[in-house]
Design a protein around this nucleic acid. Structure first.
Length: 430
RNA sequence: GGAGGGAUGGCAGAGCGGACGAAUGCGACGGUCUUGAAAACCGUUGGGCCGGCAACGGUCCCGGGGGUUCGAAUCCCCCUCCCUCCGCCA
């Protein structure tokens, strides 16, 4: 949520930021208009309240002095003011609600460094690592759904029987590989990041805090009966972990790592990338997230990116890092780096992590504040996060990249300790 | 799910129609004392919104929402959450 005071004090900057995203400025116009009306209304209401308070105190004093019979005129006066006050108050509440509804649907402003652009095509490729199209052999050009079926480690057909299309089921060594990837990703981050196992069903407020609601209702699974939502990412519960709290600057930054199931309706993407593991409704992901001061944000952003990218590198996966342009960054983000792995079997770049800096956008929605060590008052935090490892696409790229001429999957060194039970004999893994 | 009891500042805990943003204690911070520390003593110690360069002023906040009243932390209604007992359950 944008800061209403920023809109008031520097409307031009907000307007420019929204324009860089290609946003229709009419919402901003409306907010500015409603805000002016709201403020003049509350000022009048507060003045009335002050009068009522003064009168009531006078009435109280009369009663205390046993002169209650002299209070009738004052009581009548106050009653009349009360009527006006209620009217103004009701209208003021109404306006405040309208303003909030609009603000909740407005996107974050892009960071100054965020490259301009209208869409995916304008994203800037910062670097490509380990990618040489000519270096891939024929045995690596097999899509993971075929590798998976052949080795009995991925059973898409039966998953569809159980849950419908875009659900998958890992079996045997394939299921173990999911578990191994998640544990690896957690183990690699617990040095700095506190391990958390949060709920995956959350209240509406929790979804609103990260920006997943109200704008993206259609993307989320809702349990209407219980008024709960299935989280699309651990970002949702982790961002709200300190919601409505006032932290001490000395305790910042706070860092968390969480492995959860993630649920996505993928409403807008019917028919797109539906094969195999490219796009699924339910998947495992290890997320890392940080809360910090504005001054800490840049370092934290770099740190999260380095950790996510480092893991991909060590898994031996070709990948590239994109600096998303203003036309492609997510609604809540100010700046985002995407990590895409190259999957040779399907010959596609697959997004495996969006490492985002949300400035104070989510923190304002979640009411995440801190008390500066030297300064006075309170400040709004910054939030940042990224996937340390998103299972399905990494699983796919790994199985395709490390497929041997014999059709087995060669497990990279750092995963081997987690897969000891599956590395004996001539099973699917080697 | 049933029956009771609760929700007040960082924490504990009073207040139960008027002078209450709220006693008191603890904690924290600053000071006096001390070579230093502890103890003791003195003082400070919430947040939101609006106006103001600021000092400051106005208003709101005692779980949330509504109501009664000239006036609500205090009375009434609804909701949420927590605790105890019973039932059920992994």
């Amino acid at each position: 949520m944008l800061d209403l005071r920023l809109i008031r004090n520097d409307e031009d900057a907000v307007r420019a930021g929204l324009a860089r995203r290609g946003e229709d400025p009419s919402t901003l116009d409306r907010v500015v208009e409603l805000d002016a009306e709201h403020r003049s209304l509350t000022a009048r209401r507060d003045a009335l309240r002050a009068e009522i308070r003064t009168i009531s105190n006078q009435v109280g004093a009369l009663f205390r002095e046993q002169r209650g019979d002299e209070a009738a005129a004052l009581q009548e006066e106050s009653r009349a003011l009360g009527g006006q006050e209620q009217e103004l108050d009701a209208r003021s509440d109404e306006l405040a609600g309208e303003i909030r509804d609009l603000l909740l649907r407005m996107p974050n402003l892009p960071a100054a460094e965020c490259p301009d652009g209208g869409g995916e095509a304008d994203n800037v490729v910062l670097r490509v690592d380990g990618f040489d199209p000519a270096a891939y052999a024929e045995h690596q050009r097999v899509p993971h759904w075929d590798v998976g079926a052949e080795l009995g480690i991925l059973d898409v057909e039966r998953a569809v029987k159980l849950s419908g299309s875009m659900f998958v089921m890992y079996r045997g060594a394939g299921a173990a590989l999911v578990r191994a990837l998640c544990q690896l990703a957690i183990d690699r981050n617990v040095d700095l990041y506190e391990e958390v196992r949060p709920p995956t069903l959350v209240r509406t407020d929790t979804m609103v805090s990260t920006g997943h609601l109200p704008k993206f209702v259609d993307e989320a699974y809702q349990l209407e009966r219980d008024d709960l939502w299935a989280i699309p990412t651990a970002e949702v519960p982790l961002t709200s972990l300190h919601r409505d709290e006032l932290l001490d600057e000395a305790d910042l930054p706070r860092r968390f790592v969480a492995h959860t199931s993630c649920f996505r309706r993928e409403a807008g993407s019917a028919g797109k990338d539906t094969r195999g593991l490219l796009r699924v409704h339910e998947f495992d992901k290890v997320e890392i997230l940080a809360l910090g001061t504005p001054a800490q944000a840049a370092d934290l952003h770099a740190e999260i990116l380095a950790r996510a990218e480092g893991l991909i590198t060590e898994l031996g996966l070709a990948h590239r890092v994109l600096d998303l342009c203003t036309g492609d960054i997510g609604n809540s983000a100010a700046r985002t780096f995407d990590i895409e792995v190259y999957a040779p079997g399907v010959d596609q770049w697959l997004e495996v992590s969006s490492v985002s800096w949300f400035s104070d956008y989510q923190a304002r929605r979640a009411n995440l504040r801190y008390r500066p060590t030297d300064g006075k008052g309170t400040e709004v935090l910054h939030t940042l996060n990224g996937s340390a490892l998103a299972v399905p696409r990494v699983w796919a790229a790994l199985v395709e990249t490390h497929r041997t001429p014999e059709g087995q999957v060669l497990i990279p060194d750092l995963l081997r300790p987690y897969l000891q039970l599956y590395l004996r004999g001539d099973g699917p893994f080697r």
